[in-house]
């Protein structure tokens, strides 16, 4: 069979090539981006729109409704603690980036260290956030401020929680010997890393808007 060395035509083929090909044909890829990365980017675009609607509500309540005091008297937001929490979350972006840089160079120990540090920093952020909720003194029913405050920070907290689940899976896989330096072999860290950066970027905006402005 002299035609056996002829490459498979795209999206199908003659019976000669099929004789050597087992399983379904390879999926057509029209994009330069692998489907996992494209998927997380499309997901993030939808998330930006979700956060955008919450920010629109926030600014509507603050600027258009314009209550007498914001936050309502006598409550105050713990800006210093939230600022420290911001530093913790921003640091976690550096550690996940370190983990990715490590695995790109084939350094698996560095990747594991970066993932574990990121996970610990993310969990610390979430605990500080919950502790803040406990001690704030107002609830989601305390005027429109309470509602939008808990909605916006809670929405972000939920994203941190999801990010921690993704990081847990990546960390477990890393300790079980998965991932290597080839780009397609560490997508399991790359995709949660992109998501984690998104969560970090959103927090910077939430913090500046809710706690500072």
């Amino acid at each position: 069979m002299e035609s056996a060395s002829v490459p498979l035509p795209h999206g199908g083929g003659g019976h000669t090539a099929e004789a050597h090909h087992h399983g379904p044909p390879a999926a057509n890829q029209s994009s330069r981006i692998d489907r996992q990365t494209l998927g997380i980017f499309l997901f993030i675009i939808s998330e930006v729109m979700l956060f955008g609607s919450f920010f629109a509500s926030y600014f509507f309540l603050r600027v258009v409704v314009n209550p007498v005091s914001w936050p309502p008297y006598p409550f105050e937001l713990p800006v210093a603690i939230a600022g420290m929490n911001t530093a913790i979350l921003v640091s976690s972006s550096f550690t996940i980036h370190y983990a990715l840089e490590a695995i790109r160079k084939g350094n698996r120990q560095g990747m594991k260290l970066g993932l574990v540090l990121t996970w610990i920093l993310g969990l610390t952020f979430l605990f500080v956030q919950i502790n803040e909720y406990v001690h704030l003194g107002f609830s989601g029913r305390t005027e429109s401020f309470g509602t939008i405050f808990y909605s916006l920070t809670g929405l972000h907290g939920a994203h941190v929680f999801i990010g921690l689940i993704l990081l847990s899976a990546a960390t477990l896989r890393a300790f079980r010997g998965h991932f290597s330096k080839e780009p397609e072999k560490h997508l399991g860290v790359e995709v949660p890393g992109i998501y984690w950066h998104f969560v970090d970027i959103m927090w910077i905006i939430v913090f500046a808007t809710v706690y500072i402005l």
């Binding site: 981006i33 990365t37 494209l38 980017f41 921003v90 972006s93 996940i96 980036h97 990715l100 840089e101 780009p183 790359e190 890393g193 992109i194 950066h197 998104f198 970090d200 970027i201 910077i204 905006i205 913090f207 500046a208 500072i212 402005l213």
Partner: peptide, 30 residues
């Protein structure tokens, strides 16, 4: 590029922008 390193660069950009907003707010008025 569509990868983590490119998004990390945006963390730094948004971080710097956020820091400028926070700094200006604290120095002047909201």
């Amino acid at each position: 590029n569509f990868n983590e390193a490119a998004v990390f660069k945006w963390v730094l950009i948004v971080g710097a922008a956020g820091a400028s907003v926070i700094g200006l707010t604290l120095l002047t008025r909201p």
